[in-house]
Design a protein around this nucleic acid. Structure first.
Length: 326
DNA sequence: GGTAGACCTGGACGC
DNA sequence: GCGTCCAGGTCTACC
């Protein structure tokens, strides 16, 4: 027997705009359907996996209608509410929008300020690792296989599941390459265990997700904790920080260089262009990433149409340098 | 502190 | 169909 939940949202919330706002909405197990404007995916709940389908019949501001494929008990309903709230950043309201739009009024009319993310920090971290040093098509593949091979009911694999997976098996089944060991080590850290790793062995304390998610923790403390994780460098740490709602740092990569050259008109070596891109967004202060990202996103939409029209298995595969370079 | 090279995979390209 | 080259961020060794 399916369960239907109704979740209240901020007045401005618009599901197609706010769900299709960051590339992870195109990665498994997420599935955006442009035909009926719904977001579907399995969620791993205490009582087992459950598929959810999220719609917003009355937009903007109307409550979300969340349908599941099985009956949920009260505790599981609370879990779904918490995970949907995290994914869609329902806790970011008009005050967050005003803060961003006062610094960058270009996006006031569209109302863009929310950035899609995963239902758990662990999924965000692993998705970030799978996006490093690969083309977008490989990132798509890795996430699909992780869900198919190690997720319950097609959901994203949990930390305990990946923590007990042999790295070679992960590599063989999911094409994660040399990231195999790093992913397993991160999973172990998320299960509350410390590890010792590296060519010059160093001890890494367990990840305290609650502290990382807490607004009371300083940006510097979060950054230091993230950089200590295996496979997490400056780019990945900055990206995870924006996924944690901390927008002052830019995850600069080769895509930033392309953007700096073609859209912002900067010249020079990749390192010089990156430096100029970073400086360009300094005036945006603690909203720098939002300003940078929605500028980038606007470029993608100019190429491929509004993001809510993109399909995971067609348009969603086109975000490679070959398709984006001018 | 700065930097070159290794790490892997999928895709593009030439034959 | 096969071989080669390239893109991509992090880690390590070395200067």
């Amino acid at each position: 027997m399916p369960t239907r939940l109704s979740i209240a949202v901020p007045d401005d919330f618009d599901l197609p705009r706010d769900a299709c706002s960051y590339g992870y909405f195109l990665l498994a197990p997420n599935l955006w359907n442009p035909d009926d404007l719904s977001l579907s995916r399995p969620l791993d709940l205490d009582g087992g996996p459950a598929k959810v389908r999220i719609r917003q019949p009355s937009r903007p501001g109307g409550p979300l209608r969340v349908d599941t494929d099985r009956t949920l008990d009260p505790a599981e309903r609370a879990e779904v509410r918490a995970q949907v709230t995290r994914m869609l950043r329902l806790d970011e309201d008009a005050s967050h929008a005003a803060r961003f739009h006062s610094l960058d009024p270009r996006f006031k009319e569209s109302g863009r300020f929310r950035l899609f993310r995963s239902p758990t920090l662990f999924e965000d971290v692993i998705k970030t690792v799978t996006s490093c040093n690969v083309t977008w098509t490989s990132t798509i593949l890795m996430n699909r296989r992780l869900c198919e091979c190690f997720g319950r009911g097609g959901s994203f694999p949990t930390a305990p599941r990946l923590a007990r997976t042999p790295p070679a098996l992960l590599r063989g089944r999911c094409s994660v390459g040399y990231r195999d060991r790093r992913i397993v080590e991160i999973a172990r850290l998320f299960t509350g265990r410390a590890i010792t790793t590296g060519a010059t062995p160093r001890r890494i304390p367990p990840v305290d997700a609650q502290t990382l998610e807490s607004p009371a923790t300083t940006d510097q403390a979060v950054l230091d904790s993230l950089l200590a994780l295996p496979g997490i460098g400056p780019y990945a740490a900055a990206n995870i920080m924006q996924l944690l709602g901390r927008y002052s740092r830019l995850p600069l990569d080769t895509e930033s260089v392309r953007h700096g050259k073609t859209i912002l008109g900067f010249k020079g070596s990749p390192a010089q262009v990156m430096k100029r891109v970073r400086e360009h967004f300094v005036p945006m202060g603690d909203q720098a990433f939002r300003s940078y990202w929605f500028e980038l996103w606007r470029f993608y939409e100019s190429r491929h149409g509004p993001a809510w029209t993109w399909r995971r298995d067609s348009t969603g595969r086109l975000f490679t340098s070959a398709h984006l370079s001018t």
